[in-house]
Design a protein around this nucleic acid. Structure first.
Lengths: 189, 189
DNA sequence: TCTCGATACTCAATTATATGAATAGGCAGA
DNA sequence: TCTGCCTATTCATATAATTGAGTATCGAGA
Protein backbone atom coordinates (compact mmCIF):
# COMPACT_ATOMS: atom_id res chain seq x y z
CA UNK A 1 0.00 0.00 0.00
CA UNK A 2 3.01 2.28 0.13
CA UNK A 3 4.44 1.87 -3.34
CA UNK A 4 1.79 4.32 -4.53
CA UNK A 5 3.17 6.92 -2.17
CA UNK A 6 6.74 6.18 -3.10
CA UNK A 7 5.79 6.78 -6.73
CA UNK A 8 4.02 10.02 -5.88
CA UNK A 9 7.01 11.19 -3.86
CA UNK A 10 9.39 10.32 -6.69
CA UNK A 11 7.25 12.22 -9.19
CA UNK A 12 7.41 15.40 -7.16
CA UNK A 13 10.64 16.30 -8.88
CA UNK A 14 9.22 16.52 -12.35
CA UNK A 15 7.66 14.48 -15.09
CA UNK A 16 8.84 10.94 -15.58
CA UNK A 17 7.88 8.04 -17.77
CA UNK A 18 7.45 4.58 -16.30
CA UNK A 19 10.74 3.66 -17.81
CA UNK A 20 12.58 6.61 -16.28
CA UNK A 21 10.95 5.93 -12.93
CA UNK A 22 12.14 2.37 -13.14
CA UNK A 23 15.69 3.65 -13.61
CA UNK A 24 15.29 5.97 -10.66
CA UNK A 25 13.94 3.13 -8.54
CA UNK A 26 17.14 1.32 -9.27
CA UNK A 27 19.46 4.02 -7.99
CA UNK A 28 18.50 7.15 -6.09
CA UNK A 29 14.92 6.37 -5.24
CA UNK A 30 15.94 2.93 -4.13
CA UNK A 31 17.07 4.67 -0.98
CA UNK A 32 13.55 4.66 0.27
CA UNK A 33 11.75 2.07 -1.79
CA UNK A 34 12.48 -0.63 -4.29
CA UNK A 35 10.30 -1.87 -7.12
CA UNK A 36 10.52 -3.59 -10.45
CA UNK A 37 9.47 -1.88 -13.69
CA UNK A 38 6.31 -3.95 -14.06
CA UNK A 39 5.11 -2.82 -10.68
CA UNK A 40 5.69 0.79 -11.55
CA UNK A 41 3.72 0.60 -14.77
CA UNK A 42 0.86 -1.06 -12.93
CA UNK A 43 0.97 1.48 -10.16
CA UNK A 44 1.08 4.42 -12.53
CA UNK A 45 -1.98 3.09 -14.34
CA UNK A 46 -3.83 2.76 -11.04
CA UNK A 47 -2.79 6.22 -9.89
CA UNK A 48 -3.95 7.68 -13.19
CA UNK A 49 -7.34 5.97 -12.94
CA UNK A 50 -7.72 7.48 -9.51
CA UNK A 51 -6.67 10.90 -10.73
CA UNK A 52 -3.62 11.15 -8.48
CA UNK A 53 -1.24 11.49 -11.40
CA UNK A 54 -1.82 12.76 -14.93
CA UNK A 55 -0.06 11.36 -17.97
CA UNK A 56 0.58 12.88 -21.34
CA UNK A 57 1.83 11.20 -24.45
CA UNK A 58 5.12 12.33 -25.95
CA UNK A 59 5.69 11.31 -29.54
CA UNK A 60 9.27 10.50 -30.37
CA UNK A 61 10.87 9.80 -33.69
CA UNK A 62 13.96 7.80 -33.14
CA UNK A 63 12.58 5.75 -30.27
CA UNK A 64 9.24 4.46 -28.97
CA UNK A 65 6.70 7.01 -27.79
CA UNK A 66 6.36 7.45 -24.07
CA UNK A 67 3.95 8.75 -21.48
CA UNK A 68 5.15 11.28 -18.94
CA UNK A 69 3.42 11.55 -15.59
CA UNK A 70 3.06 14.33 -13.05
CA UNK A 71 1.37 14.53 -9.67
CA UNK A 72 -2.05 16.20 -9.66
CA UNK A 73 -3.48 18.33 -6.86
CA UNK A 74 -5.40 15.29 -5.68
CA UNK A 75 -2.14 13.34 -5.65
CA UNK A 76 -0.47 16.05 -3.63
CA UNK A 77 -3.36 15.95 -1.16
CA UNK A 78 -3.07 12.17 -0.92
CA UNK A 79 0.63 12.47 -0.07
CA UNK A 80 -0.23 15.07 2.52
CA UNK A 81 -2.75 12.68 4.06
CA UNK A 82 -0.28 9.80 3.95
CA UNK A 83 2.42 11.83 5.68
CA UNK A 84 0.08 12.42 8.58
CA UNK A 85 -0.74 8.83 9.47
CA UNK A 86 1.51 6.51 11.41
CA UNK A 87 4.39 4.80 9.62
CA UNK A 88 5.02 1.16 10.14
CA UNK A 89 8.48 0.42 11.49
CA UNK A 90 11.22 -0.33 9.01
CA UNK A 91 12.67 -3.81 8.89
CA UNK A 92 15.75 -5.39 7.52
CA UNK A 93 15.06 -8.33 5.27
CA UNK A 94 18.17 -9.81 3.87
CA UNK A 95 19.05 -13.26 2.59
CA UNK A 96 22.66 -12.75 3.45
CA UNK A 97 21.87 -12.00 7.08
CA UNK A 98 19.95 -15.26 7.24
CA UNK A 99 23.03 -17.05 6.01
CA UNK A 100 25.24 -15.35 8.58
CA UNK A 101 22.79 -16.30 11.32
CA UNK A 102 23.36 -19.91 10.34
CA UNK A 103 27.05 -19.31 9.69
CA UNK A 104 28.68 -21.55 12.25
CA UNK A 105 26.36 -24.45 11.55
CA UNK A 106 27.00 -24.56 7.84
CA UNK A 107 29.94 -24.19 5.48
CA UNK A 108 31.19 -20.61 5.57
CA UNK A 109 33.26 -20.45 2.37
CA UNK A 110 30.39 -19.32 0.19
CA UNK A 111 29.07 -16.93 2.83
CA UNK A 112 32.43 -15.22 3.11
CA UNK A 113 32.56 -14.84 -0.63
CA UNK A 114 29.11 -13.30 -0.70
CA UNK A 115 29.99 -10.91 2.10
CA UNK A 116 32.90 -9.67 0.04
CA UNK A 117 30.77 -9.27 -3.06
CA UNK A 118 28.28 -7.28 -1.06
CA UNK A 119 30.99 -5.04 0.28
CA UNK A 120 32.19 -4.39 -3.26
CA UNK A 121 28.64 -3.63 -4.40
CA UNK A 122 28.30 -1.23 -1.48
CA UNK A 123 31.52 0.49 -2.61
CA UNK A 124 29.99 1.16 -6.00
CA UNK A 125 26.73 2.36 -4.51
CA UNK A 126 28.56 4.67 -2.12
CA UNK A 127 30.40 6.30 -4.96
CA UNK A 128 27.20 6.71 -6.94
CA UNK A 129 25.40 8.26 -4.02
CA UNK A 130 28.30 10.59 -3.34
CA UNK A 131 28.06 11.91 -6.88
CA UNK A 132 24.30 12.18 -6.64
CA UNK A 133 24.58 14.22 -3.46
CA UNK A 134 27.07 16.54 -5.07
CA UNK A 135 24.81 17.04 -8.06
CA UNK A 136 21.84 17.75 -5.82
CA UNK A 137 23.51 20.34 -3.67
CA UNK A 138 25.45 22.06 -6.45
CA UNK A 139 28.06 24.50 -5.23
CA UNK A 140 26.76 25.00 -1.72
CA UNK A 141 28.20 23.02 1.13
CA UNK A 142 25.91 20.56 2.86
CA UNK A 143 25.10 22.63 5.93
CA UNK A 144 24.11 25.61 3.86
CA UNK A 145 22.20 23.60 1.29
CA UNK A 146 20.13 21.93 3.99
CA UNK A 147 19.34 25.33 5.52
CA UNK A 148 18.47 27.18 2.36
CA UNK A 149 18.04 24.74 -0.54
CA UNK A 150 14.53 24.70 -1.92
CA UNK A 151 14.26 20.98 -2.55
CA UNK A 152 16.03 18.89 0.05
CA UNK A 153 13.82 15.77 0.28
CA UNK A 154 15.80 13.65 -2.18
CA UNK A 155 19.03 14.81 -0.59
CA UNK A 156 17.90 13.68 2.83
CA UNK A 157 16.90 10.22 1.66
CA UNK A 158 20.20 9.88 -0.18
CA UNK A 159 21.99 10.66 3.06
CA UNK A 160 20.13 7.75 4.64
CA UNK A 161 21.04 5.51 1.75
CA UNK A 162 24.66 6.51 2.01
CA UNK A 163 24.89 5.85 5.70
CA UNK A 164 23.11 2.53 5.22
CA UNK A 165 25.57 1.44 2.55
CA UNK A 166 28.58 2.52 4.58
CA UNK A 167 27.45 0.58 7.62
CA UNK A 168 26.56 -2.39 5.51
CA UNK A 169 29.97 -2.41 3.87
CA UNK A 170 31.75 -2.15 7.16
CA UNK A 171 29.73 -4.95 8.68
CA UNK A 172 30.29 -7.20 5.65
CA UNK A 173 34.06 -6.68 5.76
CA UNK A 174 34.26 -7.27 9.48
CA UNK A 175 32.11 -10.41 9.43
CA UNK A 176 34.03 -11.78 6.45
CA UNK A 177 37.23 -11.27 8.43
CA UNK A 178 35.82 -12.89 11.57
CA UNK A 179 34.54 -15.92 9.71
CA UNK A 180 37.73 -16.17 7.68
CA UNK A 181 39.91 -16.19 10.76
CA UNK A 182 37.83 -18.84 12.45
CA UNK A 183 38.13 -21.00 9.37
CA UNK A 184 41.88 -20.79 9.22
CA UNK A 185 42.51 -21.02 12.95
CA UNK A 186 40.50 -24.04 13.98
CA UNK A 187 40.41 -25.51 10.52
CA UNK A 188 36.76 -26.51 10.78
CA UNK A 189 35.04 -27.85 7.69
CA UNK B 1 10.86 -17.89 -0.57
CA UNK B 2 13.33 -16.87 2.11
CA UNK B 3 11.11 -16.88 5.16
CA UNK B 4 11.54 -20.64 5.21
CA UNK B 5 15.27 -20.21 5.54
CA UNK B 6 14.94 -17.53 8.15
CA UNK B 7 12.81 -19.93 10.18
CA UNK B 8 15.32 -22.74 9.74
CA UNK B 9 18.17 -20.45 10.77
CA UNK B 10 16.24 -19.28 13.83
CA UNK B 11 15.50 -22.87 14.86
CA UNK B 12 19.19 -23.78 14.84
CA UNK B 13 19.46 -22.57 18.42
CA UNK B 14 17.03 -25.06 19.89
CA UNK B 15 13.42 -26.06 19.92
CA UNK B 16 10.80 -23.37 19.63
CA UNK B 17 7.05 -23.25 19.32
CA UNK B 18 5.40 -21.06 16.72
CA UNK B 19 4.53 -18.66 19.47
CA UNK B 20 8.08 -18.42 20.78
CA UNK B 21 9.39 -18.00 17.27
CA UNK B 22 6.93 -15.18 16.76
CA UNK B 23 8.38 -13.46 19.84
CA UNK B 24 11.88 -13.97 18.56
CA UNK B 25 10.88 -12.55 15.18
CA UNK B 26 9.81 -9.46 17.01
CA UNK B 27 13.13 -8.80 18.68
CA UNK B 28 16.41 -10.54 18.04
CA UNK B 29 15.59 -12.40 14.88
CA UNK B 30 14.04 -9.28 13.46
CA UNK B 31 17.61 -8.26 12.78
CA UNK B 32 17.60 -10.38 9.70
CA UNK B 33 13.98 -11.02 8.91
CA UNK B 34 10.55 -9.90 9.96
CA UNK B 35 7.32 -11.88 9.95
CA UNK B 36 3.95 -11.99 11.63
CA UNK B 37 2.88 -14.95 13.78
CA UNK B 38 0.39 -16.22 11.21
CA UNK B 39 3.12 -16.45 8.63
CA UNK B 40 5.32 -18.42 10.97
CA UNK B 41 2.65 -20.99 11.77
CA UNK B 42 1.96 -21.43 8.08
CA UNK B 43 5.64 -21.74 7.30
CA UNK B 44 6.27 -24.24 10.10
CA UNK B 45 3.41 -26.40 8.81
CA UNK B 46 4.91 -26.34 5.31
CA UNK B 47 8.40 -27.09 6.57
CA UNK B 48 7.05 -30.01 8.58
CA UNK B 49 5.19 -31.45 5.59
CA UNK B 50 8.45 -31.29 3.66
CA UNK B 51 10.38 -32.91 6.47
CA UNK B 52 12.73 -29.97 7.03
CA UNK B 53 11.60 -29.51 10.61
CA UNK B 54 10.09 -31.98 13.09
CA UNK B 55 7.50 -31.03 15.67
CA UNK B 56 6.54 -32.66 18.91
CA UNK B 57 3.57 -31.92 21.10
CA UNK B 58 4.16 -30.73 24.64
CA UNK B 59 1.21 -31.05 26.99
CA UNK B 60 0.91 -28.25 29.50
CA UNK B 61 -1.40 -27.91 32.45
CA UNK B 62 -1.80 -24.29 33.29
CA UNK B 63 -1.71 -23.09 29.70
CA UNK B 64 -2.52 -24.32 26.19
CA UNK B 65 -0.52 -27.20 24.77
CA UNK B 66 2.14 -26.35 22.28
CA UNK B 67 4.25 -27.88 19.53
CA UNK B 68 8.01 -27.53 19.61
CA UNK B 69 10.00 -27.69 16.40
CA UNK B 70 13.57 -28.57 15.58
CA UNK B 71 15.54 -28.67 12.33
CA UNK B 72 15.98 -32.12 10.79
CA UNK B 73 19.02 -33.30 8.84
CA UNK B 74 17.13 -32.56 5.64
CA UNK B 75 16.48 -29.07 6.97
CA UNK B 76 20.15 -28.60 7.72
CA UNK B 77 21.00 -29.73 4.20
CA UNK B 78 18.47 -27.30 2.77
CA UNK B 79 20.09 -24.43 4.68
CA UNK B 80 23.46 -25.54 3.41
CA UNK B 81 22.13 -25.46 -0.15
CA UNK B 82 20.53 -22.08 0.40
CA UNK B 83 23.75 -20.57 1.75
CA UNK B 84 25.49 -21.49 -1.47
CA UNK B 85 23.26 -19.74 -3.97
CA UNK B 86 23.32 -16.04 -4.70
CA UNK B 87 21.58 -13.65 -2.33
CA UNK B 88 19.40 -10.93 -3.66
CA UNK B 89 20.51 -7.46 -2.64
CA UNK B 90 19.01 -5.96 0.48
CA UNK B 91 16.72 -2.97 0.13
CA UNK B 92 15.40 -0.34 2.41
CA UNK B 93 11.64 -0.03 2.34
CA UNK B 94 10.38 2.53 4.72
CA UNK B 95 7.23 4.62 4.85
CA UNK B 96 8.99 7.31 6.79
CA UNK B 97 11.68 7.70 4.16
CA UNK B 98 8.96 8.21 1.58
CA UNK B 99 7.56 10.99 3.71
CA UNK B 100 10.95 12.62 4.05
CA UNK B 101 11.45 12.45 0.30
CA UNK B 102 8.31 14.52 -0.04
CA UNK B 103 9.18 16.61 3.00
CA UNK B 104 9.55 20.04 1.49
CA UNK B 105 6.46 19.73 -0.64
CA UNK B 106 4.13 18.82 2.20
CA UNK B 107 3.56 19.85 5.80
CA UNK B 108 6.52 18.81 7.90
CA UNK B 109 5.07 19.01 11.42
CA UNK B 110 3.85 15.42 11.45
CA UNK B 111 6.98 14.11 9.75
CA UNK B 112 9.20 15.74 12.37
CA UNK B 113 7.11 14.17 15.08
CA UNK B 114 7.41 10.75 13.50
CA UNK B 115 11.15 11.13 13.11
CA UNK B 116 11.41 11.78 16.82
CA UNK B 117 9.22 8.81 17.67
CA UNK B 118 11.38 6.63 15.47
CA UNK B 119 14.52 7.86 17.17
CA UNK B 120 13.01 7.03 20.56
CA UNK B 121 12.00 3.57 19.34
CA UNK B 122 15.56 3.08 18.10
CA UNK B 123 16.83 4.04 21.55
CA UNK B 124 14.79 1.24 23.08
CA UNK B 125 15.87 -1.25 20.46
CA UNK B 126 19.52 -0.31 20.91
CA UNK B 127 19.31 -0.96 24.62
CA UNK B 128 17.58 -4.28 24.04
CA UNK B 129 20.18 -5.38 21.53
CA UNK B 130 22.98 -4.30 23.82
CA UNK B 131 21.63 -6.57 26.54
CA UNK B 132 21.11 -9.39 24.08
CA UNK B 133 24.71 -9.13 22.91
CA UNK B 134 25.94 -9.21 26.47
CA UNK B 135 23.87 -12.28 27.21
CA UNK B 136 25.12 -14.02 24.08
CA UNK B 137 28.79 -13.45 24.72
CA UNK B 138 28.69 -14.05 28.45
CA UNK B 139 31.86 -13.07 30.26
CA UNK B 140 34.18 -12.95 27.30
CA UNK B 141 34.91 -9.70 25.55
CA UNK B 142 33.70 -9.35 21.98
CA UNK B 143 37.01 -9.94 20.23
CA UNK B 144 37.62 -13.12 22.12
CA UNK B 145 34.06 -14.36 21.83
CA UNK B 146 34.09 -13.91 18.06
CA UNK B 147 37.38 -15.81 17.85
CA UNK B 148 36.50 -18.71 20.09
CA UNK B 149 32.75 -18.73 20.80
CA UNK B 150 31.04 -21.82 19.48
CA UNK B 151 27.84 -20.14 18.30
CA UNK B 152 28.40 -16.68 16.89
CA UNK B 153 25.76 -16.45 14.13
CA UNK B 154 23.08 -14.75 16.21
CA UNK B 155 25.69 -12.43 17.67
CA UNK B 156 26.80 -11.32 14.23
CA UNK B 157 23.30 -10.55 13.05
CA UNK B 158 22.63 -8.63 16.26
CA UNK B 159 25.68 -6.53 15.53
CA UNK B 160 24.16 -5.65 12.19
CA UNK B 161 20.87 -4.80 13.85
CA UNK B 162 22.62 -2.62 16.37
CA UNK B 163 24.54 -0.68 13.80
CA UNK B 164 21.40 -0.29 11.71
CA UNK B 165 19.46 1.12 14.66
CA UNK B 166 22.24 3.47 15.64
CA UNK B 167 22.52 4.91 12.17
CA UNK B 168 18.79 5.12 11.86
CA UNK B 169 18.51 7.00 15.13
CA UNK B 170 21.22 9.42 14.19
CA UNK B 171 19.66 10.10 10.82
CA UNK B 172 16.20 10.61 12.34
CA UNK B 173 17.53 13.12 14.87
CA UNK B 174 19.52 15.03 12.31
CA UNK B 175 16.69 15.20 9.78
CA UNK B 176 14.24 16.24 12.47
CA UNK B 177 16.61 19.05 13.41
CA UNK B 178 17.10 20.15 9.80
CA UNK B 179 13.38 20.20 9.06
CA UNK B 180 12.63 21.89 12.37
CA UNK B 181 15.10 24.68 11.72
CA UNK B 182 13.75 25.31 8.25
CA UNK B 183 10.26 25.56 9.69
CA UNK B 184 11.19 28.11 12.29
CA UNK B 185 13.55 30.14 10.12
CA UNK B 186 11.51 30.78 7.01
CA UNK B 187 8.22 30.20 8.75
CA UNK B 188 6.75 28.31 5.84
CA UNK B 189 3.38 26.66 6.29
C1' DT C 1 24.65 -7.56 -42.21
C1' DC C 2 23.88 -9.42 -37.88
C1' DT C 3 23.65 -9.17 -33.18
C1' DC C 4 23.18 -6.80 -29.01
C1' DG C 5 21.77 -3.34 -25.83
C1' DA C 6 18.88 0.64 -24.85
C1' DT C 7 14.32 2.59 -24.98
C1' DA C 8 9.43 1.79 -23.89
C1' DC C 9 5.87 -0.90 -22.41
C1' DT C 10 2.25 -4.98 -21.50
C1' DC C 11 0.21 -9.30 -19.81
C1' DA C 12 -0.32 -13.40 -17.14
C1' DA C 13 0.71 -16.34 -13.37
C1' DT C 14 2.63 -17.25 -9.10
C1' DT C 15 4.41 -16.48 -4.53
C1' DA C 16 4.85 -13.81 -0.48
C1' DT C 17 3.00 -10.73 2.98
C1' DA C 18 -0.43 -8.49 5.55
C1' DT C 19 -5.03 -7.97 7.63
C1' DG C 20 -8.76 -9.37 10.30
C1' DA C 21 -11.31 -12.35 12.97
C1' DA C 22 -11.82 -16.41 16.10
C1' DT C 23 -11.15 -19.69 19.97
C1' DA C 24 -10.07 -20.70 24.83
C1' DG C 25 -8.21 -21.18 29.50
C1' DG C 26 -5.28 -19.01 33.19
C1' DC C 27 -3.81 -15.29 35.93
C1' DA C 28 -3.27 -10.57 37.72
C1' DG C 29 -4.96 -6.28 39.17
C1' DA C 30 -8.98 -2.73 39.97
C1' DT D 1 -16.01 -10.18 40.00
C1' DC D 2 -15.01 -8.01 35.84
C1' DT D 3 -11.56 -6.60 32.59
C1' DG D 4 -7.96 -7.34 30.02
C1' DC D 5 -3.46 -9.38 28.90
C1' DC D 6 -0.61 -13.65 28.10
C1' DT D 7 -0.16 -18.15 26.13
C1' DA D 8 -1.03 -20.77 21.82
C1' DT D 9 -2.94 -21.45 17.50
C1' DT D 10 -6.03 -21.54 13.14
C1' DC D 11 -8.61 -19.94 9.13
C1' DA D 12 -9.90 -16.94 5.44
C1' DT D 13 -9.20 -13.10 2.64
C1' DA D 14 -6.84 -9.35 0.51
C1' DT D 15 -2.98 -6.92 -1.16
C1' DA D 16 1.71 -6.59 -2.73
C1' DA D 17 5.78 -8.27 -5.02
C1' DT D 18 8.27 -11.37 -7.99
C1' DT D 19 8.94 -14.16 -12.11
C1' DG D 20 8.74 -14.95 -16.83
C1' DA D 21 7.56 -14.06 -21.29
C1' DG D 22 6.70 -11.08 -25.09
C1' DT D 23 6.46 -6.84 -28.54
C1' DA D 24 8.73 -3.36 -31.35
C1' DT D 25 12.11 0.14 -33.08
C1' DC D 26 16.71 2.49 -33.17
C1' DG D 27 21.54 2.85 -33.31
C1' DA D 28 26.23 1.15 -32.46
C1' DG D 29 29.74 -1.99 -33.09
C1' DA D 30 31.75 -6.68 -34.96
Amino acid sequence: MALRHAVLAALLDGEYSGYQLAKAFDIGVANFWHALPQQLYTELAKLEREGLVAGRQVIQESRPNKRLFRVTDAGQAELERFAADVSKPSFIRDDLLVKVQAADRIGTASVIEQLQERAAAADAKIELLGELLLRLRGDADEEEFLRTGERIGPYLTCLRGLSFEREHRQWCRRIAAVLGERRSSHAER
